[in-house]
Design a binder for these strands. Structure first.
Lengths: 348, 348
DNA sequence: ATGAGTTATGTAAGCGCTTACATCGAGTCG
DNA sequence: CGACTCGATGTAAGCGCTTACATAACTCAT
């Protein structure tokens, strides 16, 4: 390894090499690189030629040390296995990339301790700022972000009293609206397969929205069962099976996200339970999956791409010293599809 | 921004602060941090106490500059929209994380120029090494990797003559094997929806495998149509529709990946074409989607997680100055599922 | 006891870059 | 035409860390 270093160092031209070749000072080159307007055109040309001739690229460590910035930001998400985060992060990265900023990515598996560990790791690795998902995190973590004055944005959630670092949508309101649509179709016996709520405010908010909509609706509507399940196909299936093995059965099952709903749907097929004939299914997120399964899943469309982009823009603004125009609220849309139908007429 | 810097600097304790408080030299602290065995236990304890008291964390730039390492590696993948890459990258990142290495992530959208740009960006941002997907890249890019002696691994592909930087599976062989299985069922009129081959060796390899298997099989088997399509649901659907609107129709369509196959399946449903009654469909990759759609997709299982892990291990080994045990070949498995059945008896 | 060998610590020289400040020359204006 | 301004460039002092080398404090066989 020592050898490697020496070799790469030996190979790598430094600012001083460029300066010598171009016949200017290192300061001018630095300026030409970082703030071209400060350097006269002819000088800039000489410098450019020298840089090309040597194949010079600035040394990252030197730059970071002197300027105290890395032009790198971190994103910490629960998992990439969920297409929703994957596409959001992709959009996030694309916007950063256009601004010459790179992305450090880490995952937590929905574990708050893991999140703090990753926050520390990314900061130690030089991230200038962070993008985090959701609002549920221990005080320790909040304190760390505050004390270290770490520029960050929080995405995938939005509360009426959101702070300027938030960019997302109101999970509770979206779930409330979806539930209203379902109630309007005539459903009264409702079950929910909810994501694990510990350390995940979105899961809790979605349940709250469903609960509140049912309560506000009245007319005998009732949430007869709630099962928590980790966001994986098979757990969605297990939860579905558990719910359907109880009497009375619900006429509709609201699911914490599309993965759970797809798992439920798959299990329904395996059990010979007709969807939506026997029971309707509603998902959340509208990932690609939702429209490909049979029947297609009714769900809530979440603007994943736009959210990733908006998060990137807000974070870049904050890093640039501006406030950005946060908080940013994005809107969701209920997508009625064939997995949702009115309850069968013979169900009381 | 200037103010921000001054503030964060003022707040941030340096090695010297710790040294003063602990009553030792900065060198000892550096050693305690990077190579604890070199420091006696009592000294280490004093240092630890001082670090805790000050809340010290090493400054990234200083460390990178002095040691010429960042403990950061980059991964450049075509897209995160494909669950296959998403889960591979997740596994990659998890292994790195355990080794205290962080991940810089960038995407190319399958564009070779974009790949080179991202390689340069990640290197400029201090990546010690890179993980790249596939073997198809312009000479310019290869030259850059060579001249700069950038440690890297190449994943998602494997050729018999693979170099030690490869970790993946043989796309051609996997497609060949799948095609053999399909031929054994009795199919003779075959079509393929192939990924875009420009800048994507895996797409080409898969087509080659299919072609070769058909040629070797003989017995009147014929590849009657090949359509290239970008890896998106709707393009898979379009290709399916185009293929099925020609006569003679194939009895089976091999698809370049599961996304194309799922798109084809969706379109089949919309067109009222029975799968597998009228035409069988075979995918590739075995992403979660494949087993959730109706009918479930016959496909080729690719060890995404294990590939990500193996890539990480190999890259870490190479960064550590060892050769690692590359190349690493991983194995695929054909997954027969309901979207594949023998051809209808009335088809000639 | 003594010198060689070993281990623990300190000293100080950079790593490559940015940037405050100094300098210089060429306009501009009274 | 001299004082002054202003833009372009150079000078040089760090930024916080690692590490080669020097030094000090041991151990232990002789």
């Amino acid at each position: 390894m020592g050898i490697d270093h020496r070799m790469s160092r030996a190979n790598a031209p430094t600012l001083e090499d460029v300066a010598r070749l171009a016949g200017v000072s290192t300061a001018s080159i630095s300026r030409a690189l970082n703030d071209p307007d400060k350097v006269a055109k002819p000088t800039r040309d000489k410098i450019e030629k020298a840089i090309d001739a040597l194949g010079y690229t600035p040394n990252f460590g030197g730059r970071a040390l002197a300027s105290n910035r890395t032009n790198t930001v971190g994103a910490i998400i629960p998992t990439m296995a969920n297409a929703m985060f994957a596409s959001g992060v992709q959009a996030f990265q694309e916007v950063l990339s256009e601004a010459g900023v790179n992305l450090l990515l880490a995952t937590t598996g929905y574990d708050p301790e893991q999140e703090l560990r990753q926050i520390k790791a990314l900061i130690a690795h030089g991230a200038d700022g962070l993008m985090l998902i959701g609002d549920a995190r221990p005080q320790t973590t909040r304190d760390f972000l505050d004390k270290r004055r770490i520029p960050h944005v929080i995405s995938w959630c939005f509360q009426p009293e959101a702070s300027p670092v938030h960019v997302g949508f109101d999970n509770r309101a979206a779930a409330y609206a979806a539930m209203q649509r379902v109630l309007a179709l005539g459903h009264r016996r409702i079950a929910m397969i909810c994501g694990v709520r510990a350390g995940n405010d979105r899961a809790g908010d979605r349940l709250d929205g469903v609960t509140a909509a049912i309560a506000d609706f009245g007319q005998g509507a009732e949430l007869i069962q709630v099962t928590e399940a980790r966001y994986r196909l098979e757990f969605g299936g297990d939860a579905f099976e558990a719910i359907m093995s109880h009497t009375p059965r619900p006429t509709v099952i609201m699911c914490g996200n599309d993965v759970l709903a797809a798992g439920a749907l798959k299990r329904a097929r395996e059990l010979g339970i007709d969807v939506p004939g026997t029971v309707s299914l509603v998902g959340f997120d509208d990932i690609g999956l939702a429209s490909v399964v049979t029947p297609p899943l009714a769900t809530v469309r979440v603007p994943q791409i736009e959210m990733g982009r908006a998060a990137a823009r807000l974070l870049l603004a904050r890093l640039g010293g501006q406030d950005g125009d946060g908080p940013v609220e994005l809107h969701t849309e209920f997508m009625p599809r064939a997995s949702l139908a009115p309850p069968a007429p013979d169900s009381p």
